[in-house]
Design a protein around this nucleic acid. Structure first.
Lengths: 244, 244
DNA sequence: ACCTGAACACCGTTCAAGT
DNA sequence: ACCTGAACACCGTTCAAGT
């Protein structure tokens, strides 16, 4: 066994030049590997944890090394967003069911966003240019055009839909991302909502009659209800502009 | 003139212990003064410029001093938001015109947000609890109740309206806040939009037929058009749930 | 060409010490 | 009670130097 020098055990005092955190062998740095890592950190700890330094550390290198593959943090986040958009499944357009199909696409986007914490924060305020985001937008446009929605309305509608989905997704995760690390976020959230409800109910009746009266309804969370309400209104509104 | 010792000019080598940037005499620190300063910085340079250190510097003190009056940066930003909400003028409810009045309130909020750069980023993802935000929400609820909108719908609608206004305001300012400091943001923005349009138009026709075909409409900015489109759809959708 | 260490110019927040 | 200096544990990005 020890006849061949190359089989000698490395002596214990010979430490590798850079002790690496992860036991995985280092693969050569690529943009894809960086985006993968950023996505993993995003999923686990949210967007605020995605820092150049953290991603570099996770890859066993220094922050400066990332800049050879990604031009800056904003671009990295946009790449993560487009990677998430790749998960959105799109229907085969059926003109008879275009409204329901448009809703399905919206629900798919929302689900993909929610699977990746507060990634929607990247989406709001970025004109979509990544290939996968464009694929989704193209599908929405195709559905509306098939449904007889005039071009100018369709253009405004993609935008309105996108903003609604972004805002809903951000709201849905912000409270979770904000709760302290150790705690159970669901319990924490319930506690917070109950506090807000009690506060609403305790407001002076003369100045806030409606808020006091419906404090319960205002804080009855129902993530999905809120989304479906906005979605339904939006799609019906778009449909009202369609030529029959 | 020089008979009285107290009138002696201070010798030039006697520097005040802390050379202060601003020539204004320092007023005692209060939460209000801090919020004022934060708002001023926000207006001038946007939310990213509002840091504890910068506000402290502006007030001629160190960042630690702020924590005696404001519990942390998040709270400071919420105080700024509520200060902005104080600018929103609310109509006297007239049940016959509730839909138009609801729109007016939405436009007022949007205008106030836009006057203060990207302050809307604070609003998205915060349950409104400041007195002025509550005043606005109370008014919206009153208008809808007067219009015969059922309580559960009204509760969802305040939310939907708020999210739409937030998202619109954020989008409206993000591109401006992002443009490099020295440049004229309007020119910069126009340049960017033209680039995006050309990019859309150059996409492969087989995969993106609709985006290519309506590249022009998709990038025809029209901030106000986009807002009015969403607002109109939302209010009509809410009204469709009203009992007559 | 790709990677790196070190540095630059920043952050929010805490805390013991001062007045 | 209010304020402060100094420190802690971070940021994104650049750049000259290494391989």
């Amino acid at each position: 066994l020890l006849e061949d020098g190359s089989e000698l055990p490395t002596p214990p005092w010979h430490k590798p030049r850079k002790p690496r955190r992860s036991e995985a062998p280092r693969r050569p740095l690529t943009a894809e590997l960086i985006v993968d890592t950023a996505t993993r950190v995003m999923d686990a700890e949210g967007m605020d944890a995605v820092t150049m330094r953290r991603i570099a550390q996770e890859l066993g290198t220094g922050p400066a090394s990332l800049y050879a593959h990604v031009s800056n943090k904003d671009e990295l986040l946009e790449l993560v967003l487009d990677r998430v958009a790749a998960e959105v499944r799109l229907p085969e357009p059926d003109p008879a069911r275009w409204q329901e199909q448009l809703k399905e696409v919206a629900r798919e986007i929302r689900a993909a966003f929610r699977r990746h914490r507060d990634i929607a924060r990247v989406s709001l305020g970025t004109i979509p240019t990544g290939p996968n985001l464009l694929r989704v937008a193209e599908c929405e446009l195709a559905l509306m055009r098939a449904g007889g929605v005039p071009v100018p309305v369709a253009a405004l509608a993609v935008d309105a839909l996108g903003r609604m989905i972004d805002a809903d997704s951000i709201e849905g995760t912000l409270l979770l991302d904000r709760s302290p690390k150790g705690k159970d976020p669901h319990e924490e959230f319930g506690h917070y909502v109950r506090q807000v409800r009690d506060y609403f109910a305790s407001l002076p009746l003369d100045r806030f009659p409606n808020i006091v009266a419906i404090a319960d309804e205002l804080t009855r969370g129902g993530d999905d209800d809120r989304f479906e309400f906005s979605l339904d209104i939006l799609v019906r509104g778009i449909a009202s502009h369609a030529e029959r």
